[in-house]
Simulated scan of single mutants.
Amino acid sequence: MAIPIAGTPTLRLRVDPPRSRLTLRVPLASEVEPPVNTLAHVAVEVRIDGNQRFLEISTTDERLVVDGHAMLMAVADRIQLDGIEPVEALEQTLATWETILASRVRLTLQAEVGLVGELLVLRAMLDTAAAGASAWRGGLSEEHDFGFADVDVEVKTTTSEQRRHWIHGLGQLVPTGDSPLWLLSVQLTRAGEGDGHRLPELIDDLRTRVSGADRAILDQSVAAAGWSDDQRDLVTDRWRLRTPPVAFHVADDFPRLTPDLLAAASIDVAPLRQVTYEVELTGRPASSDPPATVATIIKDLGKAFDD
């Protein structure tokens, strides 16, 4: 059944119930080529009827009968009401629908776990007044995650039963200036219902603890780490500490790759564009005499294991 669509130029909507298919037929100039179609359930074809070329846009999935009709009518309105050429009208309509119906993007699991680990450290830091929120460098592309008066700290978080951590880049375990560098190893595991922390709840909790410039730093840092509040319902896992955190002094005996170490081995690092490696710290004893700030944070995070 072909239904004329009133207006100029004359368009037709063909309804094919047995195949649950809708087709919009549009006159097409002889010199115009159809667009490349990247959609799985929309067909775009050129037909010749007599001496006239037509562009036929069809839905090919029965689930698109209702929504596909709205899309085809949007194409028809652009052609008849806005005077847009058929191919451009189709491209504009599909671009609009793709934008409106774009999938929401949530943090990767690795990014979520890493952010939870850093926020737990931040909460312990605020609870003990070890430092203000400005000490957290979060996702701001600084050398290390936390910069305190007495030490820089790189927080590494894993969900593995082993204390294994990924190091990103040759500079991540290089001390900055005269500040000693410590790595704080955090192990998380999924918690039961009502136990542990969901990432959005943890962010909300921290927002209640800071204000003014510190609140701005918190919001800026979680955003730089990839968080936005429209992900709240997509992030459902609850996390708790698997073990008490352990701190390691990143000194000469710590396993790592750095530009200086590779240069000492006569390895030219200039051609190395990306370096990522995993460090196995399972069974490695914690470094003794951590700086006061690190010791305070470890003690606060370890309270859950005191019983």
Rank of each mutant, 00 (worst) to 15 (best):
M1N: 03
R12Q: 14
R14N: 09
P17H: 03
P17S: 12
L22P: 12
V26Y: 05
L28Y: 04
S30T: 13
E33L: 08
H41T: 07
V42T: 08
I48N: 04
D49I: 00
F54D: 09
T59G: 00
R63M: 06
L64W: 02
V65G: 09
H69K: 11
D77S: 10
P86S: 05
P86H: 03
E91Y: 02
L101S: 06
R104E: 11
G117Q: 02
G117C: 09
M125H: 00
L126S: 03
A133E: 08
E143T: 00
D145L: 01
F146H: 09
D152H: 10
V153G: 08
V155T: 01
T157D: 04
T158E: 05
E161L: 14
Q162T: 01
W166D: 12
H168G: 11
T176Y: 14
V186I: 13
L188H: 03
R190A: 03
H197Q: 05
T208S: 15
V210P: 12
G212P: 07
R215N: 01
D219E: 13
Q220S: 15
G226C: 10
D229K: 11
D233R: 10
D233Q: 06
D237M: 01
R238Q: 05
R242P: 00
T243R: 05
H249K: 10
P255C: 10
P255V: 07
A270P: 01
E278F: 03
L281F: 15
R284G: 04
P285D: 11
A292L: 14
V294R: 05
D300R: 05
K303E: 11
D307Y: 06
